[in-house]
Design a protein around this nucleic acid. Sequence first.
DNA 1: CCCGCTTGCCTAAAGCCTTTAGGTTGATCT
DNA 2: AGATCAACCTAAAGGCTTTAGGCAAGCGGG
Lengths: 189, 189
Amino acid sequence: MVRAGLTTERVVRAGAELADEAGFDRLTPSELARRLGVQVASLYSHVKNAHDLRTKVALLALDELADRAAAALAGRAGRDALVAFADVYRDYAREHPGRYAAAQLRLDPETAAASAGPRHAEMMRAILRGYDLTGPDETHAVRLLGSVFHGFVSLETQGGFDHSSPAAAESWVRILAALDSLLQDWPRS
Amino acid sequence: MVRAGLTTERVVRAGAELADEAGFDRLTPSELARRLGVQVASLYSHVKNAHDLRTKVALLALDELADRAAAALAGRAGRDALVAFADVYRDYAREHPGRYAAAQLRLDPETAAASAGPRHAEMMRAILRGYDLTGPDETHAVRLLGSVFHGFVSLETQGGFDHSSPAAAESWVRILAALDSLLQDWPRS
DNA sequence: CCCGCTTGCCTAAAGCCTTTAGGTTGATCT
DNA sequence: AGATCAACCTAAAGGCTTTAGGCAAGCGGG
């Protein structure tokens, strides 16, 4: 019997690839076992159950995204930082649709707190330091950015912009420009 | 044998209620049959299969949303229209989380074209007539609005804003105000 | 009134998926 | 070399989806 050499990490990594290729909803123990050339039950030594598998892929995706975002942010500020950060999101979702869908999975509070989620929020706050926002306005702006990035990317990957022109990429550029100008001139209450 | 008096419409409506109460991912033929007090196979006279059931619930949700939005838009323009429309989205998602999740289901192109989806886009364009946007800028703005509404609502219903202050409702108000001011002063290319 | 048709709902069964329990064997450490 | 741990297995229970085929409720026509 030649062992496949599974570890939790390798299982999760293979799960992420499966999600990207087949869709996040096809990320199941049985399909993953098939792809790994292994009996289904063997996975259960590395992963608690199907939900745990999906959660672990989600955490991987959040981590990867945060790493890329941090790299993109290094040495940039203001509009440059905003665009670089936003592009990381969009590119990641286009490159790894299954992982990106996984990152949208609702995590229970403790898991979420221990995930890379807070890093994402922290980076958005860092971007906003290049603009002149204070107190709750900063929080509102963080939420706006999160909404636009997530909303646009998820509509785009779902094909929401497919059958109209101009291309989604052009709207993306113009929307980021608009956000930049909005942040520069944020309406105070 | 007392007949339950099922029709496709009643099945779909019960499916929508099930989705709202148990979550869209628990909308399955077997659970729905249980709730209707009927054998699973009986549903298959009204619905092609599990996916068809979910699709029909999605179409119901899109219709209901469009109806509410149209009602909210009647007699309003400019910022009033923007806020009323946006509130319809947010309220609907909070009131009917399962249906709203269903509305996010990726539909195949023909189904999507025959759905209420295009009505939604048309209403957003109508709102923008209250601002001074022309040509592709209008499309970019439609996409921005769609992204913000969808993004915010989906982050909020996923609990993304739960563990930070201020409350999501306050950000919503401020974000809509910011969007209004952005649309009034849209940066041309 | 009753015959027949449609249709709403049923039982049965095949085939898949998830999950648990328990066993066997390869790798590793002493 | 023996012991131990981890990786992988077989087997089986139970749930879900889907199809095939059958019975009967209620309607419309004769």
